[in-house]
Structure formats: C-alpha cells, structure tokens
Design a protein around this nucleic acid. Sequence first.
DNA 1: GTCTATAACGAGATAGAC
DNA 2: GTCTATCTCGTTATAGAC
Lengths: 248, 248
Amino acid sequence: MSAVRGARERARIEVTAAIKDEARKQLAAEGAAKLSLRAVARELGMVSSALYRYFPSRDDLLTALIVDAYDAVGEAAERAAAGEPGAGAGEPGAGARATGARATGLTRWVAVACAVRDWALAHPHEYALIYGSPVPGYSAPQDTVGPAARVGMVLIAIVEEAGRDEGLALMPLPDELRPEAERLAADVAPGLAPAVAAPLVAAWAQLFGLISFEVFGQFNRVVEAREVFFRRAVTELARTVGLLGRPG
Amino acid sequence: MSAVRGARERARIEVTAAIKDEARKQLAAEGAAKLSLRAVARELGMVSSALYRYFPSRDDLLTALIVDAYDAVGEAAERAAAGEPGAGAGEPGAGARATGARATGLTRWVAVACAVRDWALAHPHEYALIYGSPVPGYSAPQDTVGPAARVGMVLIAIVEEAGRDEGLALMPLPDELRPEAERLAADVAPGLAPAVAAPLVAAWAQLFGLISFEVFGQFNRVVEAREVFFRRAVTELARTVGLLGRPG
DNA sequence: GTCTATAACGAGATAGAC
DNA sequence: GTCTATCTCGTTATAGAC
C-alpha cells in the first residue's frame, strides 16, 4: 500500500518534470505568450486533458516555470555567496581559501553577480520569463514572491555581514529618502541600516540592467569584452552600497 | 496630376498611421508575439491582403513599431537634454534659466533619465517591445540601430560637454578594460575619452535596469516612493561617469 | 482514488477555392 | 474581396482502466 503510493508519487513527479521540461523547450522556441498545453501534451504523446491532472490550468504551468526559474537563479546566487565553485571565474575565496582567510564582502558580491549572469546567459529564455516583459494576460500569484526574493536576499546578507565584519563606507541618506528607506529596511530586512537599504535596492536593479542588456542583445555591436566589462561594472556598483576595496 | 499624387500620398500616410495605431493597441492587449496582420485588418474593417500594400510582412510592421518606439523615447531624451519642459519635474534649468545660468551636466543627466522613465511609464508596452524580452522568431534589421542609439547618444553628449565645460571626476581606467574602452570610444563617439566610455555604457545599462524593474513590476511591494527613489539612484549613477555635485 | 482517453464547447486563426 | 472548410486553442464532462 505504501509501496504503491510511493510508486505513484514517483511516477507523478516524473511526469510533472517531463511536462515542465517540454514546456521549457516551447518557451525557448515560441515564447511564453504562445506556450500551449496542447502542444506540450502532443509532444509528450499524451492527450491534452491528461495534463490537467498535473496543472489545473495553463497559467499554473506558467507559474511553475516561473517559480523554478527564480529558484534556479536564487540557488546559483546562494551557492556563489557561500563560496561554492561551479561559476568558474566568479567564485570568491579562490585565493583566500588557500591562505585560510574569509572572502571579503566585495569578493562575494562580485561572485554572486557573476553567478547570476552565468545563469542568465545559460538560460536566456527562462531569464526572459522572470526578468523580461510581463506575459500578457498573466498575473503572477503570491507563490512567486518568495522565490523571486532569493537573489535580493543574498545581496542583503552580503552587505549586512560585511557591515558587521568590515564596516561600510556609505553616502549619507538624503532626507527625502529617509521614510522610504526606513520602511524598506523594516519590511524586507529587519536589522538592515536604512541608509544602506535604498542604495542596495538600486544596485540590485542596476545589476539586472547590465545582465538584461547583455542577454536581450542591447550590447550587440557595443560591448565586446562582456565579462571583463561586467566584472568592472558590478565592482563599481558594490562601492555604491558601501562595499569598499579594489578587486584583486 | 501632382495634386492627385499628393492626395494619394496623404491617404497612404493616414492609413499607415491607422495601421500602426491599431497594431499598438494589440501590442498592449496581446503582446508582440501574438501581433497578427489579420487581426489588425479586421479591426480596421479592411481585408488582410490589403495590409500587405503598406507592410510587406508582419515583421516589417513590427520593425516600424520598434523604430517608432526608439524614436519616441529618443526624442523625449533629446528634448529633456535641451532643457525643454514637458517632462514636468525633470527638466533641467528650471531654476538656472531664471538666473541666466546654463544647466549643469548633472542636472541635464537627471532630466534625461526622468524623461525616459516618464515615457516608459506612459508607454509600458512599447517600452517592453524595445527593452524587454526579444520577440521569438523576430530579428531586428539594420534599420533599428540608428534609432536605438539615440538615448545613448544623448547621454554621451551630456558627459562630453560637461567634460569640456566643468571637467570630470573619473576613476582611473583599469588596464584590463583599456582595449575595450578605446575601441568603444572610437566606435561610438570619437572624441570621447576612453576612461569615460566604459562607465558611461555601464550607467546606460543600469539606468534602464531601474526603469525596467519599475515598469515590469519587480518593485511591487518593494519600492513605494518610486520617483524620489529613482531620482536619487540616477544622481548617484551620474557620479560614476564623473558628473559631480549634489542635486538642488 | 488516480490516472488516461474520448468527445465536445466556443473562440479564434489559417489556407485556398471562388 | 469573400466564403468556407479545416486547423488551432483552453477547458470541461464523462467513461473506463488500474
């Protein structure tokens, strides 16, 4: 009985994964707006109504893809922040680990930025799904806000820790921004100094501006040495959130 | 005879404009991926084959919409840089004109950023068309690169002029970025110092990162006081391209 | 209970004959 | 330009296999 349920659940998980994989293929080929349950079913050799056992509607399938994408980029960011390898040139502590020293806030910041960029370049269509134009007629449910926040949380944690361990070199918070900064800090990261909340959100948006321009082709015929350019830009970005120092 | 041709040409211009207007409506309703010549024709009371006398293909209609959008945001940026009103809170020289003084580089920079943001918020679907996810199956022809460059050219001109009139306070150009910066400066703005080219392109991308996050909904439940936050962020951004000073 | 298949609905796109 | 026959789509109801 429990073995049967185990087998059923395993089968269910496998079919669910197959549906999402096929849907991701269509995402790449036709775009999110044209994602079609029938086409997915056809390609899988199923009948369209069978898909409704796994996803109650087309929008629910889209939501699952969006959550998966946010989770994938969030996990890449978390691994990079923790100093795990895999991102290649981006991981922090490549030199510091040898000497036993902890990676600095700046190094971790750049590592996370590079990890997010690497993921985006490797999965441009999933990146477009979450950071590109909204899908017409689709409105994201509450389920997406947690996964969507993961990358931002990683950046917050880096700056928070660096503030404790190394101190931050911040611009003074302008008066006109004080109420917003205090609300933001309280809302999103209790314990974060209001003076760092506003620059941090700005740097977060600006980081994805750099990545979006590269992934969406705005850098064609403009920027050629993209990785070195990106590393330089996000290092300067780190300075605006108070993370000082020059890269090694 | 020439009067007849004049009337014909006037009619052609009017119909072309009507087609593009209807196409823009569909852009808003269904997204660029589902833009269909047939639906546009139906809505205009024409037959689909008649549209082909105005646009040889769906992609040509898309290209026209893209060029129009780049031109519209480019013109908004150029007007703001020239100190023309219309953007509301953003125009430079509001105080300086009264005293007869020229707007500073920083003031003009912020004015351009605000004008681009205002345009984007007023035309979110056209903004998505040019700065959002690429349209699947569509590849932009050469005709779009000129209009696409207009906003960037405005930013370059502001920094160039400020460099002549006020001087710039720049970070030193790192060696690893020197070849790219020199190529970029030579390619895109002869006469621009290589040390400013790289930060300028980065600031350009980051500016659109701020706007995209706002237009695409990433700031929902995160940033509430969006205009004051935006003005602050782009002012700080101006500092990274050597435009110094605090806003008035 | 869990799944798949058949059939159907209303709406819309599409291709081709006329 | 028009009309029609044939596709697609999301979604539901229903019946039967395991």
